[in-house]
Amino acid sequence: MDRRQLIKWLKEPLKMSNKYSLHVVYFCTGCGIIEIPPSITARWDAERFGVKPVATPRQANLFLITGYVSLKTLKPIIRTYEQMPAPKYTVAFGSCPIDGGMYWDSYNTINHLDKYIPIDGYIAGCMPRPEAVFAGITHLWTLIDEGKADGYKKYRRNYSQYRSNQERLYGELGWPPRFETEGLENE
């Protein structure tokens, strides 16, 4: 942990603070939510790394998608993700968000979450234990360090593609496009 290295702080305050002040928004998207309470309470105490659950996406910069994503939950997930202020990171739990997992041929569960919102990191497993969560977070740190955790930039860059994917699923989404969507109709 380089939290105490003053030089690094002075050089890259943005990266450093983003790393060590991860405010988490999580809501019960899937079964992985069961792993969150242990990781933030006394046993594992995520707060010592500055990871702290907050109440609204406005205050958060890390989005934990805990488990499989049904069609019904995806819409709030997209909206919540869009409401978080940039820079923001997303970490998906378990195998379901990666490729559908055991729900891959379900009629109301999506298979690839990263078609709809950008995912900065996956924690594989069904389901991952708190240790894995911490592993995921430390991995996220390295990604932030290396500048690879740029999902929010990707989302903005390729917004028309994401939006068209979302709209293919739902038809009308119920809120206007977040960014410019040129070429959306052409696809």
């Binding site: 809501f27 609204t56 406005r58 819409k75 709030p76 909206r79 919540t80 409401q83 119920g174 809120w175």
Partner: peptide, 10 residues
Amino acid sequence: QEDSYTAGAP
């Protein structure tokens, strides 16, 4: 105004 926190719902 419509872009307000509603736990993801419109």
